[in-house]
Protein backbone atom coordinates (compact mmCIF):
# COMPACT_ATOMS: atom_id res chain seq x y z
CA UNK A 1 0.00 0.00 0.00
CA UNK A 2 1.43 3.28 -1.01
CA UNK A 3 2.16 5.86 1.61
CA UNK A 4 0.63 9.25 1.84
CA UNK A 5 -1.47 9.40 -1.33
CA UNK A 6 -4.69 11.26 -0.72
CA UNK A 7 -4.92 10.61 3.00
CA UNK A 8 -5.74 13.29 5.52
CA UNK A 9 -3.32 13.60 8.43
CA UNK A 10 -5.00 13.76 11.83
CA UNK A 11 -4.83 17.11 13.56
CA UNK A 12 -3.46 17.54 17.06
CA UNK A 13 -6.85 18.16 18.67
CA UNK A 14 -8.56 15.36 16.76
CA UNK A 15 -5.87 12.97 17.98
CA UNK A 16 -6.30 14.20 21.54
CA UNK A 17 -10.07 13.75 21.24
CA UNK A 18 -9.55 10.20 19.94
CA UNK A 19 -7.33 9.40 22.92
CA UNK A 20 -9.88 10.86 25.33
CA UNK A 21 -12.74 8.87 23.79
CA UNK A 22 -10.79 5.64 23.76
CA UNK A 23 -9.64 6.02 27.37
CA UNK A 24 -13.16 6.66 28.58
CA UNK A 25 -14.50 3.75 26.51
CA UNK A 26 -11.80 1.48 27.95
CA UNK A 27 -12.69 2.52 31.50
CA UNK A 28 -16.34 1.68 30.89
CA UNK A 29 -15.40 -1.84 29.79
CA UNK A 30 -14.05 -2.35 33.31
CA UNK A 31 -16.67 -0.61 35.48
CA UNK A 32 -15.51 -2.40 38.63
CA UNK A 33 -12.06 -0.94 38.40
CA UNK A 34 -13.47 2.46 37.61
CA UNK A 35 -15.69 2.51 40.70
CA UNK A 36 -12.99 1.50 43.17
CA UNK A 37 -11.87 5.06 44.08
CA UNK A 38 -15.41 6.31 44.64
CA UNK A 39 -16.31 3.30 46.79
CA UNK A 40 -13.14 3.88 48.78
CA UNK A 41 -14.12 7.54 49.15
CA UNK A 42 -17.56 6.60 50.46
CA UNK A 43 -16.20 4.07 52.92
CA UNK A 44 -13.39 6.21 54.32
CA UNK A 45 -15.60 9.23 54.83
CA UNK A 46 -18.35 7.24 56.55
CA UNK A 47 -15.80 5.77 58.96
CA UNK A 48 -15.40 9.18 60.58
CA UNK A 49 -18.99 9.76 61.72
CA UNK A 50 -19.01 6.18 63.00
CA UNK A 51 -15.81 6.52 64.99
CA UNK A 52 -16.30 10.07 66.25
CA UNK A 53 -19.18 11.39 68.26
CA UNK A 54 -22.26 11.74 66.07
CA UNK A 55 -22.80 15.28 67.29
CA UNK A 56 -23.74 17.29 64.24
CA UNK A 57 -21.97 20.49 65.23
CA UNK A 58 -18.71 18.63 65.79
CA UNK A 59 -19.02 16.70 62.52
CA UNK A 60 -19.69 19.89 60.66
CA UNK A 61 -16.49 21.41 62.03
CA UNK A 62 -14.28 18.60 60.75
CA UNK A 63 -16.22 17.66 57.62
CA UNK A 64 -14.17 19.81 55.15
CA UNK A 65 -10.99 18.08 56.24
CA UNK A 66 -12.50 14.61 56.04
CA UNK A 67 -13.99 15.32 52.61
CA UNK A 68 -10.71 16.53 51.20
CA UNK A 69 -8.39 13.98 52.73
CA UNK A 70 -10.78 11.26 51.56
CA UNK A 71 -10.91 12.66 48.04
CA UNK A 72 -7.13 13.03 47.93
CA UNK A 73 -6.48 9.45 49.02
CA UNK A 74 -9.11 8.03 46.68
CA UNK A 75 -7.62 9.90 43.74
CA UNK A 76 -4.19 8.55 44.63
CA UNK A 77 -5.54 5.02 44.27
CA UNK A 78 -6.25 5.53 40.60
CA UNK A 79 -3.05 7.36 39.75
CA UNK A 80 -0.63 4.48 39.42
CA UNK A 81 -2.54 2.98 36.52
CA UNK A 82 -2.31 6.24 34.58
CA UNK A 83 0.47 5.11 32.22
CA UNK A 84 1.52 1.70 33.50
CA UNK A 85 -0.62 -0.46 31.19
CA UNK A 86 0.33 1.64 28.17
CA UNK A 87 4.01 1.25 28.94
CA UNK A 88 3.65 -2.50 29.20
CA UNK A 89 1.61 -3.08 26.05
CA UNK A 90 3.62 -0.73 23.84
CA UNK A 91 0.99 2.00 23.46
CA UNK A 92 3.36 4.66 24.79
CA UNK A 93 5.85 3.85 22.03
CA UNK A 94 3.07 4.28 19.49
CA UNK A 95 2.22 7.65 21.04
CA UNK A 96 5.80 8.81 20.77
CA UNK A 97 6.05 7.94 17.07
CA UNK A 98 2.51 8.93 16.14
CA UNK A 99 3.71 12.31 14.91
CA UNK A 100 1.48 13.96 17.50
CA UNK A 101 2.94 16.13 20.28
CA UNK A 102 3.29 13.80 23.24
CA UNK A 103 2.33 16.46 25.79
CA UNK A 104 -1.06 16.95 24.11
CA UNK A 105 -1.70 13.21 24.23
CA UNK A 106 -0.75 13.24 27.90
CA UNK A 107 -3.16 16.13 28.53
CA UNK A 108 -5.93 14.13 26.85
CA UNK A 109 -5.06 11.20 29.10
CA UNK A 110 -5.20 13.45 32.19
CA UNK A 111 -8.65 14.75 31.24
CA UNK A 112 -9.93 11.24 30.52
CA UNK A 113 -8.50 9.98 33.78
CA UNK A 114 -10.22 12.77 35.67
CA UNK A 115 -13.51 12.05 33.88
CA UNK A 116 -13.53 8.45 35.04
CA UNK A 117 -11.91 8.85 38.47
CA UNK A 118 -12.45 12.46 39.59
CA UNK A 119 -15.98 13.11 38.36
CA UNK A 120 -17.47 10.14 40.25
CA UNK A 121 -15.99 11.60 43.46
CA UNK A 122 -17.65 14.91 42.67
CA UNK A 123 -20.93 13.11 42.05
CA UNK A 124 -20.62 11.29 45.37
CA UNK A 125 -19.82 14.48 47.28
CA UNK A 126 -23.43 15.37 48.24
CA UNK A 127 -23.90 11.89 49.69
CA UNK A 128 -20.71 12.16 51.70
CA UNK A 129 -21.55 15.73 52.64
CA UNK A 130 -24.94 14.70 53.96
CA UNK A 131 -23.40 12.01 56.14
CA UNK A 132 -20.98 14.60 57.53
CA UNK A 133 -23.73 17.13 58.31
CA UNK A 134 -22.73 19.56 55.58
CA UNK A 135 -25.75 21.78 54.88
CA UNK A 136 -27.33 21.31 51.44
CA UNK A 137 -26.64 24.95 50.64
CA UNK A 138 -22.92 24.18 50.55
CA UNK A 139 -23.17 21.19 48.17
CA UNK A 140 -22.77 23.21 44.98
CA UNK A 141 -19.59 24.96 46.06
CA UNK A 142 -18.22 21.75 47.54
CA UNK A 143 -18.71 19.89 44.28
CA UNK A 144 -17.13 22.68 42.28
CA UNK A 145 -14.13 22.81 44.59
CA UNK A 146 -13.76 19.04 44.57
CA UNK A 147 -13.96 18.99 40.78
CA UNK A 148 -11.17 21.55 40.49
CA UNK A 149 -9.09 19.87 43.16
CA UNK A 150 -9.29 16.38 41.66
CA UNK A 151 -8.52 17.75 38.19
CA UNK A 152 -5.45 19.49 39.57
CA UNK A 153 -4.45 16.28 41.33
CA UNK A 154 -4.84 14.29 38.11
CA UNK A 155 -2.41 16.72 36.50
CA UNK A 156 0.12 16.44 39.33
CA UNK A 157 -0.39 12.69 39.42
CA UNK A 158 0.38 12.37 35.72
CA UNK A 159 3.83 13.81 36.25
CA UNK A 160 4.35 11.59 39.28
CA UNK A 161 3.04 8.47 37.55
CA UNK A 162 5.24 9.08 34.52
CA UNK A 163 8.30 9.66 36.70
CA UNK A 164 7.75 6.42 38.60
CA UNK A 165 7.17 4.28 35.50
CA UNK A 166 10.68 2.94 35.84
CA UNK A 167 10.19 1.37 39.26
CA UNK A 168 8.20 -1.79 39.80
CA UNK A 169 6.37 -1.08 43.05
CA UNK A 170 5.74 2.55 42.45
CA UNK A 171 2.62 3.31 44.51
CA UNK A 172 4.39 4.35 47.72
CA UNK A 173 6.94 6.40 45.82
CA UNK A 174 4.14 8.00 43.84
CA UNK A 175 2.32 9.02 47.04
CA UNK A 176 5.54 10.48 48.44
CA UNK A 177 5.99 12.50 45.28
CA UNK A 178 2.45 13.72 44.81
CA UNK A 179 1.05 14.27 48.33
CA UNK A 180 3.43 17.13 49.29
CA UNK A 181 2.62 18.88 46.02
CA UNK A 182 -1.08 18.41 46.70
CA UNK A 183 -1.02 20.34 49.96
CA UNK A 184 -2.10 23.68 48.46
CA UNK A 185 -5.10 21.90 46.93
CA UNK A 186 -6.00 20.51 50.33
CA UNK A 187 -5.58 23.84 52.09
CA UNK A 188 -7.62 25.96 49.68
CA UNK A 189 -10.17 23.22 49.05
CA UNK A 190 -10.89 22.58 52.71
CA UNK A 191 -10.99 26.29 53.46
CA UNK A 192 -13.47 26.80 50.64
CA UNK A 193 -15.80 24.10 51.95
CA UNK A 194 -15.45 25.56 55.43
CA UNK A 195 -16.51 28.98 54.19
CA UNK A 196 -19.39 27.47 52.22
CA UNK A 197 -20.68 25.69 55.31
CA UNK A 198 -20.55 28.95 57.26
CA UNK A 199 -22.39 30.67 54.42
CA UNK A 200 -19.58 33.10 53.70
CA UNK A 201 -18.29 34.12 50.24
CA UNK A 202 -16.09 31.42 48.67
CA UNK A 203 -14.78 33.38 45.74
CA UNK A 204 -11.23 33.48 47.07
CA UNK A 205 -10.56 29.76 47.44
CA UNK A 206 -12.43 29.04 44.20
CA UNK A 207 -10.28 31.43 42.22
CA UNK A 208 -7.08 30.25 43.84
CA UNK A 209 -7.92 26.63 43.15
CA UNK A 210 -8.82 27.47 39.54
CA UNK A 211 -5.49 29.23 39.12
CA UNK A 212 -3.65 26.25 40.60
CA UNK A 213 -5.47 23.90 38.25
CA UNK A 214 -4.67 25.97 35.19
CA UNK A 215 -1.04 26.25 36.23
CA UNK A 216 -0.79 22.51 36.84
CA UNK A 217 -2.46 21.52 33.60
CA UNK A 218 -0.28 23.83 31.57
CA UNK A 219 2.99 22.57 33.06
CA UNK A 220 2.64 18.92 34.06
CA UNK A 221 1.81 17.48 30.61
CA UNK A 222 5.24 18.60 29.45
CA UNK A 223 6.95 17.16 32.48
CA UNK A 224 5.02 13.90 32.14
CA UNK A 225 5.80 13.71 28.42
CA UNK A 226 9.52 14.03 29.10
CA UNK A 227 9.32 11.40 31.81
CA UNK A 228 7.44 9.06 29.45
CA UNK A 229 10.18 9.41 26.86
CA UNK A 230 12.78 8.55 29.47
CA UNK A 231 10.79 5.52 30.58
CA UNK A 232 11.03 4.05 27.08
CA UNK A 233 14.83 3.82 27.29
Amino acid sequence: MNAGEGTVPTGMLAAAAATFRRDVALAFRRPGQMLQPVVFFLIVTTLFPLSLSPQLSQLRDISPGILWVGALLSSLLALESLFRADLEDGTLEQWVISGQPLAVQVLARILAHWTVSGLPLVAAAPLVGASLAVPASAFGTTMLLLGLGTLCLSGLGAAGAALTLGSRRASVLLSLLVLPLAMPILIFGARGVDLAILGEPTRGPLLLLSALTILTLSLTPWAAASAVRISLE
Binding site: E88, G90, E93, I97, G99, P101, L102
Partner: peptide, 15 residues
Protein backbone atom coordinates in the same frame (compact mmCIF):
# COMPACT_ATOMS: atom_id res chain seq x y z
CA UNK B 1 7.55 14.40 15.83
CA UNK B 2 7.80 14.78 12.07
CA UNK B 3 10.12 11.79 11.90
CA UNK B 4 7.77 9.69 14.02
CA UNK B 5 4.97 10.27 11.54
CA UNK B 6 7.10 8.75 8.77
CA UNK B 7 7.89 5.63 10.75
CA UNK B 8 5.93 2.55 11.75
CA UNK B 9 7.15 0.25 14.49
CA UNK B 10 6.21 -3.31 15.25
CA UNK B 11 7.78 -4.21 18.57
CA UNK B 12 7.56 -7.17 20.89
CA UNK B 13 4.31 -5.81 22.30
CA UNK B 14 1.51 -5.28 19.79
CA UNK B 15 0.06 -2.17 21.54
Amino acid sequence: DEFGAQMACLGHEPA
